[in-house]
């Protein structure tokens, strides 16, 4: 009996180890094979010679710009949605619907967002396939992340602050703006950073909303097509005419993307950790 339990217990430890081991191995593999490729030239130059040489600057640029653009939409919408849920609509039916929708958005397959982005932003709203359509599409995809994170932060603001505010004659909006929101700022920041980490790595929603295989110039307006790190990895590994030859470029691109998403996520974890410590 005792012995059997020890085995079971070790199995759960083993499961944990396997997961962490796999995770580390993935990072290690990409790092090991990609690090040698990363040079200033690789980061700052466009691809050359049919994308078999040169750098990935346009892809980095496209990824950053579309992600920044996404933030502009998703942060205000996400934060105010969370404010509604936590400050105005506690227990209301509208809140229940919002929650259902947020939950649902979090699990809609990303390719479906791609279809929607094409059907709605690109074709129906006539925004065309470009940075803006892609940013809006990814923005909807990451909306739940911002909402959940902000809501957690709002919930952690003690009610006594709100009461004190009201007792001094502050209106609801004044209490939210000058007491609740400043307190929730780290949580909002976490949400924004996490949404960046997630949004950067998404490729499927871009496929029909403006990502380009190769562009000789950088996008100059938000309606222009763009190159993207994740998409670059995909085409270089599956459609480039010499897949073996461009392995280093593939690894280098994967490493750049992985470092970006990992660091955003680690920063978010760190802020969240500090926030929770401060609270207790």
């Amino acid at each position: 009996m005792r012995f059997k339990e020890k085995i079971y217990l070790s199995l759960t430890a083993l499961a944990t180890l396997i997961i962490i081991g796999l995770l580390s191995y993935i990072i290690f593999d990409i790092l090991k094979n990609g690090i040698g490729v990363i040079t200033w030239e690789f980061l700052s130059q466009p691809p050359r010679e049919g994308m078999t040489k040169g750098g990935i600057f346009p892809a980095i640029y496209g990824t950053l710009v579309r992600t920044l653009l996404m933030l502009v939409f998703v942060v205000p919408i996400g934060v105010f949605t969370a404010i509604y849920l936590n400050e105005y609509g506690r227990g209301s039916n509208f809140s229940k619907w919002i929650r259902l929708a947020i939950n649902n958005l979090a699990s809609v397959p990303s390719i479906v967002f791609g279809l929607f982005g094409m059907g709605f932003f690109v074709l129906f709203l006539r925004l065309g396939a470009g940075l803006l359509s892609a940013a809006l599409t990814i923005g909807i995809l990451t909306l739940p992340i911002v909402v959940v994170s902000t809501e957690e932060a709002l919930r952690a603001v003690p009610n006594s602050y709100r009461e004190a505010g009201f007792a001094l004659g502050a209106t609801k909006w004044q209490v939210i703006r000058s007491i609740v929101l400043p307190q929730a700022l780290p949580g909002i920041l976490t949400g924004a950073i996490l949404s960046v980490g997630r949004g950067m790595g998404e490729v499927a929603p871009l496929l029909f909303t403006g990502v380009a295989y190769y562009l000789p110039y950088l996008p100059s307006s938000i309606f222009d097509q763009f190159m993207d790190l994740g998409y670059h990895i995909y085409i270089m590994t599956t459609q480039s005419f010499n897949i073996e030859l461009t392995r280093p470029i593939q690894y280098g691109t994967a490493l750049v993307l992985l470092m970006l998403t990992l660091s955003f996520n680690i920063i978010a974890i760190f802020i969240r950790y500090r926030m929770r410590r401060k609270r207790s």
Binding site: I19, G201, A204, A254, T261, L262, I266, Y273
Partner: peptide, 26 residues
């Protein structure tokens, strides 16, 4: 727990295209 949990959750920070690439190679 406070360490292991975020570490495992970091898995979700790896873009699926990178996972796909890793799978392709390994």
């Amino acid at each position: 727990r406070e360490i292991i949990k975020p570490v495992i959750e970091l898995f979700s920070a790896i873009p699926s295209v990178v996972l796909g690439f890793f799978a392709l190679m390994n």
